[in-house]
Computed example of a mutant assay.
Amino acid sequence: MPNTDFSPAEVARRIEEDDAADLFVLDVRNEDAYEEWQIDDSTNIPIYDELLEYDYSSLEEHLDELPEDTEIAVVCVAGITSARAAAFLREHGFDAKSVDDGMNGWGRVHRQYDLDAADGVVQIVRPGTGCVSYLAHDGEEAVVVDPSQYVDRYLNAADERDLEIVGVADTHAHADHVSGARRLAGELDVPYYLHGDDAGELDNVTTLTDGETVPVGEREFEVLHTPGHTPGSVSFRFGDALLAGDTLFLRSVGRPDLEDGAEDAVREAASRLFDSLERLTDLDDGTVVLPGHFSDESGRPLATALGDLRAETTNELLSDVEDGDESAFVETIVESLADEPANYNEIKQINWGKAQPGGNVEALELGPNNCAAN
Results as ranks from 00 to 15, higher is better:
residue 1 M to T: 03
residue 225 H to R: 14
residue 284 D to M: 04
residue 193 Y to I: 03
residue 184 L to H: 03
residue 122 V to F: 00
residue 221 F to A: 04
residue 158 A to P: 09
residue 43 T to E: 14
residue 264 D to F: 12
residue 266 V to P: 07
residue 163 L to G: 04
residue 368 P to W: 02
residue 224 L to S: 05
residue 44 N to S: 07
residue 285 D to P: 03
residue 129 T to C: 06
residue 99 V to T: 02
residue 173 A to P: 03
residue 355 A to Q: 15
residue 99 V to C: 06
residue 357 P to W: 06
residue 154 Y to E: 10
residue 285 D to N: 12
residue 151 V to T: 13
residue 351 N to H: 11
residue 87 A to C: 00
residue 199 A to V: 02
residue 236 F to G: 10
residue 143 V to M: 07
residue 340 E to V: 09
residue 264 D to R: 13
residue 134 Y to I: 00
residue 275 D to Q: 13
residue 233 S to W: 00
residue 340 E to F: 13
residue 30 N to V: 01
residue 67 P to G: 08
residue 299 G to I: 00
residue 141 E to S: 12
residue 163 L to V: 03
residue 275 D to S: 15
residue 163 L to F: 06
residue 86 A to C: 03
residue 214 V to G: 08
residue 192 Y to T: 08
residue 37 W to C: 08
residue 43 T to M: 05
residue 217 G to V: 01
residue 291 P to A: 08
residue 333 I to F: 10
residue 50 E to L: 14
residue 28 V to K: 07
residue 156 N to M: 14
residue 214 V to Y: 04
residue 156 N to H: 14
residue 33 A to M: 11
residue 170 D to H: 09
residue 286 G to Q: 08
residue 73 A to Y: 03
residue 38 Q to A: 13
residue 127 P to C: 08
residue 104 N to A: 14
residue 89 L to G: 02
residue 263 E to N: 10
residue 256 P to V: 00
residue 279 R to C: 00
residue 261 G to D: 15
residue 346 E to W: 05
residue 61 E to G: 08
residue 138 D to V: 03
residue 151 V to Q: 02
residue 72 I to L: 10
residue 30 N to S: 07
residue 94 F to I: 07
residue 237 R to G: 01
residue 139 G to N: 07
residue 94 F to S: 06
residue 219 R to Q: 11
residue 225 H to D: 12
residue 303 A to P: 00
residue 100 D to I: 01
residue 19 D to M: 07
residue 272 R to T: 13
residue 90 R to A: 08
residue 288 V to G: 05
residue 34 Y to D: 00
residue 355 A to Y: 04
residue 31 E to H: 08
residue 107 G to F: 00
residue 337 L to A: 03
